[in-house]
């Protein structure tokens, strides 16, 4: 649909179109370079959207499309009339906003700090080490964290007792209200280095002459960071921000599930796990699809809003 605006529209008003048409002709290489991929993505990403019809059916695998029973909006009504859904939504949003704030700014800072390291071998080593936890699965990381926070010889409690901050071990994992923080910090631990790579690359693209010039002008390090590094990676920061805001409702469930336990369940259950438990795992494909559609609509709305806001404020946008 969007393509039509770009490609030729033969039988429309000649004059205005002609100029556009000639621009298009001028930009023929740009079309050659993009249209095949547009078609590609339409085939692999847009065509399967017919599957959304499932949300309006009582879908049973094995029956043909015509044999399915149509139920209208029943699956959506079921979702919105379920009080549990709102609890799950609250947890999802809480944790994703926290991770947006922390898990997003820290990697930027980390990349900037890494860039300030002048000893090249040390810089490379640090960078390599920092991303290693990315390759350790959540099962393992969750196990490590639970052990560290354990009351039975966990290092955090031992440390706190040693410095007399507490006199009895604290059950960190048994406090629902702490759970969101624990998840956010664990995520930071695991993904900070990996997520900073993108900003590191963006920093590499900054013209080194700018730094040299600033040095000559007597600008200190903070000034250089503020006036050269940050503006240099601004487009990347903004685009990542806009894209992440669209993902606020879809944060996966693995880490929450693995770090959680039955005592903190009221704080740990997220939307994606809810879909899994009440959708696919029960063979309720239609319900799962309905949640997916709601999720997509919310995501796209968030994306469009944040895109507009950022465009107005910062002049950066994805669309």
């Amino acid at each position: 649909m969007a393509m039509e605006n770009g490609t030729a529209l033969p039988n429309t008003t000649p004059k205005r179109r002609k100029s556009k048409w000639s621009v298009a002709l001028e930009q023929k290489y740009l079309f050659f370079m993009s249209v095949p991929f547009v078609i590609w993505i339409i085939i692999f990403n847009y065509i399967p959207v017919w599957g959304w019809t499932m949300a309006f059916q009582k879908f049973r695998p094995g029956l043909s499309f015509r044999e399915q029973t149509w139920v209208g909006f029943d699956n959506f009504v079921a979702l919105f009339s379920e009080p549990h859904f709102y609890l799950v939504l609250r947890n999802t949003l809480a944790m994703s906003i926290m991770s947006l704030v922390v898990g997003y700014t820290v990697p930027v800072l980390f990349a900037i700090l890494l860039n300030e390291l002048r000893h090249m071998a040390f810089k490379r080593t640090m960078q390599t080490i920092s991303y290693l936890p990315h390759f350790v699965s959540w099962v393992v990381v969750a196990g490590l964290i639970t052990k560290m926070l354990s009351t039975d010889g966990g290092i955090v409690n031992q440390l706190l007792i040693a410095i007399h901050a507490i006199d009895k071990p604290i059950q960190f994992m048994a406090h629902g209200e702490w759970f969101w923080g624990i998840v956010t910090m664990s995520d930071l631990w695991k993904e900070m280095g990996w997520n900073s790579i993108i900003y590191l690359a963006a920093i590499s693209g900054i013209d080194p002459e700018l730094y040299d010039a600033a040095k000559v002008d007597g600008a200190g390090r903070f000034k250089r960071i503020w006036h050269i590094t940050l503006p240099g990676i601004r487009p990347t920061i903004m685009v990542m921000m806009i894209l992440s805001i669209g993902w606020l409702t879809s944060i996966g469930f693995e880490k929450q599930f693995l770090l959680g336990n039955s005592i903190v369940q009221d704080y740990s259950e997220v939307l994606d796990l809810y879909v899994l438990n009440y959708g696919i795992k029960m063979g309720r494909f239609s319900f799962g699809t309905a949640v997916g559609i709601v999720n997509s609509i919310v995501s796209i709305m968030l994306l469009l809003i944040s895109n507009r806001v950022f465009k107005r404020w910062t002049n950066e946008s994805v669309i």
Partner: peptide, 16 residues
Amino acid sequence: MDPESFTQKYDQYKAK
């Protein structure tokens, strides 16, 4: 009863 009965992971349980 172990106060960690409801928060521990299976491998902690096994280790204990």
